[in-house]
Design a binder for these strands. Structure first.
Lengths: 220, 220
DNA sequence: CGCACACGAACGACTGTTCGTGTGCCAATC
DNA sequence: GATTGGCACACGAACAGTCGTTCGTGTGCG
């Protein structure tokens, strides 16, 4: 799925600190990481069409033409940014779910927590992911849709498990999972680091909302 | 709040039919309605920065320069589109809530139903509203934020009423209301007219999710 | 040598906006 | 009733700037 380069670190466990973490770590290719992070910042700030390649170059501290030594076009650059963001999210989700208990309530709670933590840590990536995906075309778009379905599948599967075990009573598990994800994606749109709730409190709150929405009888 | 021109029709009761209703009816000013609707279509299709004034003119069946006889700039055109969309939504919400019973559960259910119906009837308007607001600046932006707060206030008030009366048990009513709204706004992002659920079923389903999220003990 | 990375300059296309002009309708004036 | 003025609406052409992308060239390392 991913081509060469050293593995991207996605350590979910060193969970504290850094309010502004860069999404993409060193890739082993010159300025690639700086370009990707600058593109994320530019697209997040002005939107895909509102940001120019010159903006990206300036943010990355390199020249305009040099961008094309790394990415063949602006839309491929967007695609790569979104792929990095989605990879990080999916990785965090799987780690969180695998580390959770066997019951659906625990797994859902951990999944929501991990999602919220991702939103807080990489809000810009989340905003770009939801707002700019539609500007992708062709196979870049299709691959992203597939990858996004993987996220949805994690939640769907947990809901189905919970419905089967009686932990959740919601009908139409797939629709309920999608609604939970909509609420979570919405967090990225209004979250502010100086808000009333801490990262942990926000995650806890969203987990409660999700479990309530799924009609978990014994959810606290 | 609104300046001149004949009142816009917003009849919530003739609830059937038209899968593609135009958001803006005749305004009494030449081609204004056609321009606004074309702008909505263009911004919805390509995004604010991706769509050009020439696209809007083509869609409205008029000339590029004529647009400036109606709107002084592209961003003011966006602002007017968003204002029409928000006015329609707020009107529908107030009508629905006023027509509902006195208890919070009924009022919330009707508010959610009205919201979903708006999303279905004017999906493009909803998508543009959520995705392109951030490109507004100055007082256009501020006015839109105020108007959007009015929508949130409707939901917040119902949640608070329900918490006070014991119909809802969720803590932090304002946060819960915002989460419900996030889920509803999300509907506009994935809804397809040829989907499995009818408009009414979708509204019903979202109402159930909302009431469950608010921890309504006797919600069905 | 070749390859990865870096740069400035330039291209043609497209951008939002303005300008000058023209039309036809409605009300005021002769 | 005819003439006038003004206003709302409409158009093509043009402007100055920005866009994504390409080209040619250069450097330094393996």
């Amino acid at each position: 799925m991913r081509q060469g380069g050293p593995p991207r670190a996605s350590r979910v466990d060193d969970v504290n600190a850094r309010s502004t973490a860069s999404l993409v770590g060193d890739t082993g290719r010159g300025n690639e990481a700086a370009i990707l992070n600058a593109a994320l910042a530019a697209f997040g700030d002005k939107g895909f069409h509102g940001a120019s390649m010159r903006d990206v170059a300036r943010g990355a501290g390199t020249s305009l033409s040099n961008l094309y030594n790394y990415f063949p076009s602006k839309s491929r650059l967007l695609a790569e940014v979104l792929r990095h963001a989605n990879d990080e999210l999916v990785t965090r989700l799987h780690v969180a779910v695998d580390d959770a208990g066997d019951d659906a309530v625990s797994r859902m709670r951990e999944a929501v927590r991990a999602y919220v933590r991702f939103v807080v840590d990489h809000q810009l990536a989340m905003v770009v992911s939801t707002n700019e995906v539609r500007y992708l075309a062709g196979e870049d778009r299709e691959r992203l849709v597939v990858d996004r379905d993987a996220t949805q599948a994690v939640f769907e599967q947990i809901v189905e498990q919970g419905v089967a075990s009686g932990e959740f009573r919601t009908p139409f598990p797939a629709d309920a999972a999608r609604t939970v994800l909509s609420a979570l994606a919405g967090v990225a749109q209004w979250y502010r680091p100086d808000g009333r709730l801490s990262r942990g409190q926000l995650a806890e709150q969203q987990a409660r909302y999700a479990l309530a929405l799924l009609e978990s009888p014994l959810a606290r």
